[in-house]
Simulated assay, not measured.
Amino acid sequence: MSNPVLHAFFLGRAFAEVLSEKVEESLTEALSELGKFDAEQRENLRQFIEEVQLRAEREATQGNATTTTTTTTADNGSSVDLQETIDDLRAEIARLKAELKNYRNTKA
């Protein structure tokens, strides 16, 4: 390669190819990590929801045993507290569903 222009052309072309490969590798790695992160977050959210549901079922089971006591003692307002708790839980579930829907829409 005695011609410096020709040498510069091939050098520039090799530089562009190597740079393109490195950018492609970096982008692929970044997207892979993003996919892993997304999958981990979805799994964490699934586990969280499962734990909440298990606790709610456990408390509901325990609550069924005490419901008769609670409703019979309505004089002191225990029944009202139970209904308020149920309403609060329903509101919280609705809020979580809205956040989950928003999260899924932003990831789509």
Score class of each variant (00 low, 15 high):
S32D: 06
T69P: 02
K107C: 07
E50C: 10
K101I: 08
S20Y: 13
L31S: 02
D75W: 05
R95P: 00
E50R: 13
S32L: 10
E29H: 09
F9P: 06
R13W: 15
E40I: 05
K97S: 07
F9D: 10
T70N: 01
R90L: 05
A39I: 13
E57V: 03
K22T: 00
E50T: 11
I93F: 11
L27E: 05
A108G: 10
F10G: 08
T67A: 04
A56W: 14
Q83S: 09
T70I: 10
V5A: 15
F9I: 13
I93C: 08
S2H: 12
I86R: 08
E29T: 11
R42H: 04
S32V: 06
G12A: 14
K107Q: 13
S78L: 03
E50I: 07
S20H: 15
F10C: 12
E21N: 06
E40A: 09
F15V: 14
Q53R: 13
L11K: 15
A65R: 00
R90P: 02
E24P: 00
D87K: 07
T73H: 08
A8T: 12
A108K: 09
G12T: 10
E59S: 08
A39E: 06
A30P: 01
R58M: 13
T61H: 09
N76V: 04
M1F: 12
N76K: 01
E24I: 00
A56G: 09
Q62D: 11
D81R: 02
A91Q: 04
E99H: 07
Q62I: 10
Q41C: 02
A74M: 10
Q83K: 10
A74N: 11
F37P: 00
L6P: 06
K101C: 04
E21P: 01
A91P: 01
A108N: 11
S79T: 11
T66C: 04
G63H: 00
A65T: 01
V23P: 00
V18G: 05
K101N: 10
D87Y: 02
E50Y: 15
K107N: 10
T69E: 05
D88A: 10
E17F: 15
E51Q: 13
F15E: 15
D38E: 14
A94R: 04
E29V: 06
E40Q: 08
N76P: 05
F15Y: 15
T69A: 06
L54T: 14
T106W: 07
L96W: 01
F48H: 07
K107I: 08
R55P: 02
D88Y: 01
K36P: 02
G12M: 14
V5E: 09
N3L: 02
I86P: 05
Q83M: 07
G35C: 12
E40S: 09
E25G: 00
K22P: 00
E99F: 08
I93T: 09
F48W: 07
T67E: 01
A60P: 00
E92V: 05
L6Y: 05
R13E: 15
K97L: 07
A30M: 06
P4D: 03
N44F: 07
A74H: 08
Q47I: 13
N64Y: 01
L19Y: 13
F48D: 04
T28Q: 12
N105R: 09
N44V: 02
L27P: 01
T69W: 08
E29D: 11
F10I: 14
